[in-house]
Design a protein around this nucleic acid. Sequence first.
DNA 1: ATGGCGTATGGAATACGA
Length: 269
Amino acid sequence: MTDRLTIVTWNINSVRLRMPIIEKLLEEVQPDVLCLQETKCPDANFPVNPLKKAGYEHIQVHGQKGYHGVATISRRPLGNVERRDFCAMGDSRHIAVDVPFNGSALRLHNFYVPAGGDEPDRTVNDKFAHKLDFMAEMRDWLTGAETAKPAVLVGDLNVAPYEHDVWSHKQLLKVVSHTPVETGLMEEIRQAGNWLDAMRRFTPLDEKLYTWWSYRAKDWSKADKGRRLDHVWVSETLDRHIKSTRVLREARGWEKPSDHAPVVAVFEA
DNA sequence: ATGGCGTATGGAATACGA
């Protein structure tokens, strides 16, 4: 019996405003699990009913009023829910669950890493300092011991690590999300946990790959000045089970879109 | 033309995103 698990990660930029396109995604992609970021929704107001109606009866949220917020929505039962408060800020930026896969538990971390503000200098920009501290805490917490079991880390990590994860490496080197201090920290997190960058396994490093396009472009697709800010990382033990990843670019052009596109990952036992 | 827009809050103007 072969088990097949599809996980989608999507920075939704307000869950309540995007319910129509969330339902469209669930219908078209039929994922087993949907991880959302920037839900901007208090837990009490989370739109659970339409999701349950669509067959997603297992919903775990970590939200707050107005900002941030993550949620993991599933057709399969979820266990061992953990909501970690990084940097002790009281922010809702992480939720982890166990998802049944291949007869055992797959640990699934859903992250919304701080954006970091405009100035890439921690001495003058508290938001950038917060981002770096948050990433350092990720590195020190998600060690190889934690990821020795089947584990997946997804979410809006707000860093585009490689040269072809941005439209212009040269022009973005001093822009928050692609500065060497951020991409260096991201590499430290990845190596500390022995994570595999699954998206780059299926798209070569010399090919452009984006998941986010600014709202401000007159024609986002034509300009195509994107960045790969959303990620799917898998632990070594899942290396042979990850079968594909793809960016659902068309969703960036749907009615009232998020500025991020969903990323779809398929696992097979 | 990397911000030209979009969202939440609150009921206008500001904070925030990246």
